[in-house]
Simulated scan of single mutants.
Amino acid sequence: MRAETLAIHAGNLYNISTQDVTPPINLSTTFLRNEDGGYSGGHMYSRVSNPNRSALENTIAELEKGADACAFSSGNTAGMSVFQAFKPGSHIIAPDDMYWGFKRQLQTIFADTLSIDFIDLTDIELIKQHIKPNTVMIWTETPSNPLLKITDVAAIAEISKANGLILACDSTFASPCLQNPIALGADIVMHSSTKYIGGHSDVLGGVLITAEKNEFWEKIRNIQQIGGAVPSPFDCFLLVRSIKTLSYRMRGHCENGMALALYLQNHPAVETVYYPGLPTHPGHEIARKQMSGFGGMLSILVRGGAAEARRIVNQVKLFAQATSLGGVESLIEHRASVEGPDTKTPQNLIRISVGLEHIDDLIADFEQALAVKQL
């Protein structure tokens, strides 16, 4: 089945007695045992598994062409569960522009247990040079946050397999509808389901998908079930419901993202536009090869520095100045001020999550914001 069909049907839980077309919310925290002590209903305790969470995990696994999935209470928890599964002393190669939440985890929570090299993963030879005897994983993020760098997943997969490494890919900016890293050779895919998968800025969550159920995956599943940082049944219900429209929402995000990128690229107040759909983007050809669409995320560098960037995010009317991305509403943010004083993000960078409003209204909003002070 195609993605549109899977998104609608993979998460359905038909109740034999009531024949629900829409999956019901199952709030029970515990489930009946059989006379022999078993669980014929398939669930024992809601921290371990729940019908709604099973529906979500099954849907995401099928969309990402994986063997299994684990849902978590947030994207940060999902990523952290991967890092927790490694033995102390393990070495990880990660992108130099890694999402700041994960980078802070590695630099603080795991500073005494894991060794990390943050490098430019668009440089294949550089990756090879940083592989050590204790290297266990290459963590990629494509498109990256917030510089929209594109890494060649298939090329890095060859390196990881040749060296017996795990390849993980944060594919949050792409969603399962635009990119399937497992099909490109990745072992684990991560999504902040708060973003495009949820799509409405009203549910927090994260998910990991594995290419195969192996020993390492069992460690992650154990962390999920014993650690207990799992989404509620209601959160899972909302995510499964949102996934049903994911393919069609992503088409709108892609269309609007490209149109806004083209407009901003030609505006005199804008220095640079980072959007993989533009032929001028250094990763454009790789993105064309491994993505079916270029998404709704873009970043711009504005002329005039941090002060001008802050002025613009306060001047727009339709773009809500707020953290996060992937919702139906457009969001805008001066990213460096969120990431703190040690950020490597340029001070004149504005990150934009292009929503599903009419593109003419979004362009008109930027037109009035940029026109206030032409530089």
Rank of each mutant, 00 (worst) to 15 (best):
A111E: 15
I92W: 02
V21H: 03
A78I: 07
N145E: 10
F110V: 07
H130G: 01
S90R: 08
S54N: 10
P95R: 07
F86H: 14
I92F: 02
D36P: 00
V153N: 10
G42T: 03
G37A: 06
L63H: 02
L63R: 04
P143L: 05
P88F: 04
S40Y: 09
I138V: 15
A154E: 15
L126A: 12
L13Y: 04
S54F: 12
L63I: 04
I116K: 13
Q84S: 14
F83L: 09
Y14K: 07
I109K: 11
A69Y: 06
G38A: 05
V21Q: 02
S90I: 05
E57L: 08
L147D: 12
L27R: 15
E62M: 13
L147Y: 04
Y45R: 13
A55P: 02
T22Y: 01
I25R: 14
F118A: 00
D20K: 03
I25Q: 11
Y14W: 04
T113I: 06
I92T: 01
Q105V: 06
A157E: 12
S49H: 06
G41H: 06
H91M: 04
G75C: 12
F110G: 03
K103L: 00
E35A: 14
P24Q: 01
S115K: 10
I92G: 01
I150G: 07
L13E: 02
F118Q: 05
E64R: 10
S74T: 15
P146H: 11
A155R: 11
T29H: 08
L27Q: 12
P95A: 11
A94V: 10
L13W: 07
C70G: 01
V153Y: 09
I93T: 06
I124L: 15
D152N: 15
N52Q: 03
L63W: 02
P88G: 06
G42M: 08
I156V: 15
A157R: 01
M98Y: 11
Q84V: 00
N58L: 08
D117K: 00
L106I: 10
T22G: 00
S40F: 09
T135I: 07
T29W: 05
D68G: 01
I131K: 02
T108A: 12
K103Y: 00
L63M: 09
Q84M: 12
P23F: 03
R47F: 07
L56F: 13
S49D: 11
T142C: 07
I25M: 12
T59N: 09
L13Q: 05
G101E: 11
T29M: 08
A155I: 02
D120S: 02
T135G: 05
